[in-house]
Write a protein that binds this DNA or RNA. Structure first.
Length: 155
DNA sequence: GCCAACGTTGGC
DNA sequence: GCCAACGTTGGC
C-alpha cells in the first residue's frame, strides 16, 4: 500500500469530473512520461490512495482523494491519430503507455500549492522539489498523515 | 554514447 | 504570456 499525488488539469479532468463519471471511475489517460508510466505500471497496487491535484490552473492545489482501482492496461489514446495523446511510435502489439483506472474517494478542502509550501514538514515532498514536473509522484506515509491532518483542520 | 536543439510542463 | 527546468530526439 502506497500513497501518491496525481496531477490533472481541471479543464481536462477535475475532481468533479471524476465524481460524476460512470461508477466514479476514470482511466488516468494522457501520461507520456516514462517515470510516471512506470509508477502506474510497476509501483502502484490496487487500493493505493492518491491526492487528486489540480495543476495548470489559477490556484493549483489538492482537491480530493482517489483510489487506484485497476491493474495497468494500455492507454487507448496512444493509438488514436485524432487524439492529442497519439503516439505514432507505439503499437497495439507493443504498447508504450499503460495506465490505471482511479475511483473517486472524496472531495477535500482545497489545499493550495502555496499552503503546501508554507509547511516545513512538507519541505522534502517530491511535488515541491525544485524543477519537479512529474505528473505522478510518490507521497510518504508521514506526508500523507500530515496533509490529512491539515485537510481535517480545514474541513 | 554524447550533447545540442527542441518540445513540454506548469507555476507565476 | 513568460520562462526555468526538465525530458526526448537524433545527428555524429
Amino acid at each position: 500500500m502506497q500513497y501518491w499525488l496525481m496531477k490533472s488539469e481541471p479543464d481536462e479532468a477535475s475532481i468533479d469530473h471524476l465524481a460524476s463519471a460512470t461508477g466514479q471511475i476514470l482511466p488516468w489517460t494522457g501520461v507520456r512520461n516514462y517515470q510516471a508510466r512506470n509508477f502506474m505500471r510497476d509501483a502502484m497496487t490496487i487500493g493505493d490512495l492518491a491526492f487528486f491535484y489540480h495543476s495548470g490552473c489559477k490556484e493549483p492545489g489538492i482537491a480530493g482523494i482517489c483510489e487506484v482501482c485497476s491493474e495497468p492496461y494500455p492507454d487507448d489514446t496512444q493509438f488514436d491519430a485524432e487524439s492529442p495523446y497519439f503516439d505514432p511510435k507505439s503499437s497495439r502489439e507493443a504498447p508504450r503507455w499503460l495506465l490505471r483506472d482511479v475511483r473517486f474517494v472524496s472531495r477535500t478542502a482545497y489545499l493550495t500549492l502555496t499552503e503546501l509550501r508554507s509547511h516545513p514538514e512538507l519541505a522534502t515532498m517530491r511535488l515541491l522539489a525544485r524543477g519537479n514536473r512529474l505528473s505522478i509522484t510518490p507521497v510518504t506515509a508521514d506526508e500523507w498523515a500530515f496533509i490529512s491532518r491539515l485537510l481535517a483542520e480545514k474541513a
